[in-house]
């Protein structure tokens, strides 16, 4: 069944110049019309369309765990990568990709970054997820425990004894690190 959808969509896109769009609805009710090859980078969308027989072009797929803001960020990345893929079928122009990615994350605050990690996880875009978690790691590298707590938005919920035990257990990892 899935193959019939795939083949019909590819034939329609080649016969009519108009690109096929897929409608995605975010948690706050906004509907995004997304070009098919871009939307298919979202594994959750791809499998939704591949596994459901009764979906049509008019179907609006709800994405209750993704905010409009995160969706904008996600689509910017996916569209850029679709563009890279289209221009270079064999090898992506690596420097250009890296330059894009660097500029892309520079503009994102820690909050936006975390929100996008969750969205990328939910939408199941492994490439974006790997990239974003790597960026998150860079942002907490060489930072104090307090800073990292603030980054993740977690509270220290250990009792003083528990924390002391933990630091003793992993003593080597705290060597040469200033107490916060």
């Amino acid at each position: 069944m899935s193959s019939s959808i795939a083949s019909s969509s590819s034939s329609s896109s080649s016969s009519s110049k108009k690109e096929k769009k897929i409608s995605l609805k975010t948690s706050d009710g906004e509907v995004f019309e997304v070009e098919e090859p871009v939307a298919m980078q979202l594994e959750i969308v791809r499998s939704f369309f591949a596994d459901n027989e009764d979906v049509t072009e008019q179907t609006v797929m709800p994405l209750p765990n993704v905010s409009t803001a995160a969706m904008h960020g996600i689509l910017e990345y996916c569209r850029a990568h679709e563009e890279f893929r289209r221009r270079m079928p064999e090898a992506a122009p690596e420097e250009e990709v890296r330059a894009f990615e660097a500029g892309y994350v520079d503009r994102k605050s820690n909050e936006e970054l975390k929100e996008m990690i969750l969205a990328a996880n939910y939408l199941n875009i492994s490439k974006l997820l790997d990239f974003l978690t790597g960026v998150a790691a860079k942002r907490i590298e060489n930072k104090s425990v307090e800073y990292v707590r603030a980054f993740f938005g977690v509270e220290n919920d250990f009792t003083p004894e528990e924390e002391a035990n933990l630091r003793r257990e992993y003593e080597w990892a705290f060597e040469g690190v200033d107490e916060d």
């Binding site: 060489n142 425990v145 990292v148």
Partner: peptide
């Protein structure tokens, strides 16, 4: 993606 020593320290963030 963190060096091992730093990765280990994340165990002290929270439960």
């Amino acid at each position: 993606s963190l060096p091992t020593k730093e990765a280990t320290r994340t165990s002290a963030l929270s439960k």
